[in-house]
């Protein structure tokens, strides 16, 4: 299955009321490189994007993971995937118990309207994700300035 299918699949599943069933497809090569085939469950991760971005060159993004961030139970890493960017794996963030709080804020480039997915890897080896749709409007004029 191609990446596009996986994200489309995830998006389709998310639209269902039984969203608990929705899973990021573990067979997707990108995600498999990360999870080694382990299930990726919806939950714990919250991805915040504006619903509409005036310019895809700089879109604010926030990822939080519900975790006590203790040595025994913490987020090890957070992985960001784009459905439409030429480079689908936008960023990976590695944290640990010393973070105290599992939250990352940044600004990303998005090549058009799409769904963005964040996958978190926890210290117990489990994977969790959230996905958010965003509409990216095109700029008014192609100015050569």
């Amino acid at each position: 299955m191609k990446r596009r299918d996986f994200l489309a699949g995830a998006a389709g599943a998310l639209a269902l009321p039984g969203a608990a069933l929705a899973q990021v497809d573990p067979r997707d090569p990108l995600v498999r490189a990360l999870t080694n085939g382990a299930p990726v469950r919806k939950g714990k991760v919250t991805l915040v994007l504006p619903q509409l971005a005036d310019n895809g060159n700089s879109v604010p993004i926030r990822i939080t993971v519900d975790s006590p961030m203790t040595p025994a139970d913490h987020v090890k890493s957070i992985h960001l995937y784009s459905e439409r960017n030429p480079v689908p794996n936008m960023a990976n963030f590695y944290l640990g118990p010393r973070a105290g709080k599992a939250e990352i804020n940044s600004r990303v480039r998005l090549a058009g309207s799409q769904r963005v997915t964040a996958v978190a890897k926890l210290s117990d080896g489990s994977f969790w994700y959230d996905a958010a749709p965003i509409v990216v409007t095109l700029s008014a004029c192609l100015d050569e300035s």
């Binding site: 700089s58 709080k101 939250e103 940044s106 990303v108």
Partner: peptide, 12 residues
Amino acid sequence: SGISANPYVQFY
């Protein structure tokens, strides 16, 4: 390249 020009990152 999915991170904006003049990258901004915030963490704890």
